[in-house]
Nucleic acid binder design. Sequence first.
DNA 1: TGTCTGTTTCGACAGACGTCGAGACAGTGG
DNA 2: CCACTGTCTCGACGTCTGTCGAAACAGACA
Lengths: 125, 125
Amino acid sequence: MSKQAAPLTLADVTAEVFCCQPLAQHRVPAETAALLAPAFKALGDPVRLQLMSMIASAEGGEACVCDLTPAFNLTGPTISHHLKTLREAGLVDAERRGTWVYYRARPAVLRQLAALLSIEPATAS
Amino acid sequence: MSKQAAPLTLADVTAEVFCCQPLAQHRVPAETAALLAPAFKALGDPVRLQLMSMIASAEGGEACVCDLTPAFNLTGPTISHHLKTLREAGLVDAERRGTWVYYRARPAVLRQLAALLSIEPATAS
DNA sequence: TGTCTGTTTCGACAGACGTCGAGACAGTGG
DNA sequence: CCACTGTCTCGACGTCTGTCGAAACAGACA
């Protein structure tokens, strides 16, 4: 059961725990890169980027698949596939409540990614 | 010459000009998603994430391909391919000086991406 | 000029990705 | 219990991606 072999993804990480120095200050080590790259890859599709935004900006902090799907000219299975990708990347959590499934963003993970990309205004400017 | 058809990438944008509201505050419109997704996609590979970091954190703000390549167990052409990807994503600029080619990060673009992912600490928490 | 080193382009290949249709599963309501 | 709706999984398809080796290109230097 406990597949130790699985390379450990962001989805497993509590995200508060581990930390990222800004990209431009310290070289990202290989393990960190391997951990974080899938999250960026997940955001690297226009549809998923919009999905992520719709979920993160939804009032109440969560969005129903039934609201997400009609916003695109794509079939249900395709949207579901993209949502799964976001889930596996650790960017969102899903919860079923009755008939509908709700997705909500994981702010801590987004913050980590933002911190990694952050660039301090040039020293003393 | 002026291929209007070309969908306009981040590499063309001055990056100071256009702006990104944080993902979690306003829905990212489709055009913005199409513009920014390639940048995230480019960062969505562990090798490129490390390359980006090595370039951005290099002293003098630039890194030589000759320093980048030996840091990976990959062939020269492969590294060159990844650097091209970063270039086309608008994340880095390249300049040839004599024998060597130097890459430097485009901080404005990184800042844009960071701003997009940034999450304000929950209002009054 | 010719040769050498550093970098990129080209062509090829296996594997991953985005999309779809069909079907399976979950919950609600008759 | 059965039908209906919402969501996900499965299998398939064409395309894109990461990697390589071979070859082309660019500068430096003898």
